[in-house]
Amino acid sequence: MIIEKKLLKQDSVEKLFAKLKADGRRILAPKAQGDEIFFEQVASASEMAKDYIQTTLSPKGAVFPRVEALFRYQMEGKDVKIENNSEPQPTVIFGLRPCDAASFAILNSVFSWDYQDSQFKSRLAQTAAITVSCSRADEYCFCTSVGGSPGDTKGSDILLTRIGSGDYLAEILTEKGKAMVTLAPELFAEAPSEDKEKYLAKVPVKFDLKKLTEKLPEAFNNNELWMEQSLRCLGCGACAFVCPACVCFDIQDESKRESGVRLRCWDSCGFSLFTAHTSGHNPRPVQSQRWRQRVMHKFSYFNDRQKYLGCVGCGRCSRKCPADMNLLEHLKAIAEAR
């Protein structure tokens, strides 16, 4: 639901950053590192990458870091003292895409069904998203096939769309968004009567989601299909690491003499160790079964259990696959199979 529409001048972004920082928030924005673009803390809007379709890693790390401490511990003789984390710093993510913004609800559905993950939830509560809608897309993008769109407002607090003048049409979407506007009301002018649609990228629908989800339960037993689709898969896990919706994790300890930390780290069902028992038994011993798990989890199990798809159609997994496996092609093949 849109609370209000405003105009944010191109040169006001820097001023907005200053106001947000003065309010004690850290700002994460896309920053170039060679050919790659990552969300990093920026001091000024001038540090941001200028032209990008999609960042290399999603902004998932802001709410679900690649490696994070679950708690720290200190051994004192035979006693153990446990120290929990302090409250996270308020954070604004700037320049994420609508597909990225949509992924937060998916992550939240896992971290807050049944047992409540307080660490994730407080990070999410402290995070605001100023999303920039997509004026360009590439052949890997398929948000419109999984319920999103280049100007979708889901998950954003403010959605900016660049219009002809180079300024931004700002849709203020949530109370969090409104609170940011309140920090610098002078930067938000009256909105022009322009419609954002004509400035948005065109992303054609590439497969029939309903057909895909209907066919998956039966496709589970089609070993040939999974074998063929996964022939190129190296099991490197890159697809999971760049995915904004992958939520599987590992728990590991790191210690130095008397003190240590219990860590949560991103993991991937593409790794053979993901399911390996200590006995040596592995319920998914071959890569085709691991690829099947990736597809089934995202497009069938997630759907059933969490009422979300585990995918936002950002295309990162296919862009970054070292073996050029294209998720979109594979989903299309399953959806269109007779």
Binding site: F111, W113, Y115, I251, Y301
Partner: peptide, 18 residues
């Protein structure tokens, strides 16, 4: 039994089907 990490339905390791 299956390889488990969280024990509370989040980490994804122990899934058997859905």
């Amino acid at each position: 039994e299956n390889r488990m990490k969280c024990g509370i339905g989040k980490c994804g390791h122990c899934m058997v089907g859905k």
